[in-house]
Design a protein around this nucleic acid. Structure first.
Length: 274
DNA sequence: CCAAATCCCTGCGTGC
DNA sequence: TGCACGCAGGGATTTG
């Protein structure tokens, strides 16, 4: 399931192939969470050339150097492929963008939790308005233990739910939240408001370290995640608690336990997370 | 205002 | 082999 490292990997791959390519046509093949309005996309972007591909949290923005841009979210099972137009389409392809040179950028999404849609930039290089409420980028300098502590003050919300809240920190999803709290030695069930300053420093540092490490590995391929060329990431081999219920904690040997927080399965070691 | 619950969607693993 | 069922979860929406 795509979180920040997976989205970052996809953005890097798109950036190596899309800039300089011109949009010729768009076609909706299946419904998504948001409408892929092919007619309107063509009206605003046909003949326009991709300038760059960016990321904000788990959202992908394709810039054409004009007010209109494409905004995409991979949801749980979204993926992009760049293929020759003659290559047969696949069962779960939902949206197709035809480019110059006889190639198509195809968006596939088994469960339709993601989307590709038109978005508008108040001015070039700014973010679409619908991303205004997003929180700090965890790999930027401003993201720190102090910033997390300030936002968490007085909150009863479980710390794991808190660090997954996209209004606080972007890009941390269910896998990396469990992994970061394990590395930081914090019990995911504790209330965010009760976590101490030094503990927040550890949480922030571990989020940064784990996300960077996962980006180096090309993300984690759990279930359906694939990068643009169809290959899998490698970070899933380094997961220490996620998906490991009953397995010995790599740090202390205690069996990993699971609990539901915020409606999501959460994995933790009852001995080394306190 | 906040937090918890529900929904969306499809594939996969399990039990019978 | 087939079928019912539970589970996976990011984010929007609904409910309490």
């Amino acid at each position: 399931m795509p979180e920040l490292p997976e989205v970052e990997t996809v953005v890097k791959a798109l950036n190596s192939v899309l800039p300089g390519r011109t949009l010729r046509a768009a076609e909706e093949v299946g419904r998504l969470r948001r409408s892929f309005d092919a007619k309107e996309i063509v009206r605003r972007l046909r003949g326009k050339t991709v300038q760059q591909v960016r990321r904000r949290g788990k959202y992908i923005i394709v810039d054409f150097g004009v007010e209109a841009a494409l905004l995409a979210h991979l949801g749980m099972t979204g993926s992009f492929r760049l293929e020759a137009a003659a290559t047969p389409r696949r069962k779960h392809d939902r949206a197709v963008l035809s480019l110059d040179g006889g190639e198509e950028l195809r968006y596939a999404d088994i469960r339709r939790f993601g989307f590709v849609a038109l978005a508008f930039l108040s001015r070039p290089e700014r973010w679409p308005e619908e991303l205004a409420d997003l929180g700090l980028e965890p790999l930027e300098r401003r993201f720190s233990g102090g910033a997390l502590a300030a936002r968490a003050a007085g909150l009863k919300t479980p710390v794991k739910v808190f660090i997954m809240d996209q209004r606080v920190t972007v890009g941390v999803g269910n896998i990396y939240a469990s992994e970061a709290l394990h590395a930081a030695g914090i019990d995911p069930r504790r209330s965010a408001g009760g976590v101490g300053p030094e503990e927040w420093n550890r949480v922030a540092a571990e989020i940064k370290r784990i996300l960077r490490n996962a980006i180096r590995r090309g993300g984690s391929s759990i279930r359906n995640y694939r990068t643009v060329n169809g290959s899998e990431g490698g970070f899933q081999r380094e997961l220490r608690v996620y998906g490991k219920k009953g397995v010995a904690c790599p740090a202390c040997g205690e069996a990993v336990e699971t609990v539901r927080l915020g409606g999501r399965s959460t994995f933790f070691c009852p001995r080394c997370q306190t």
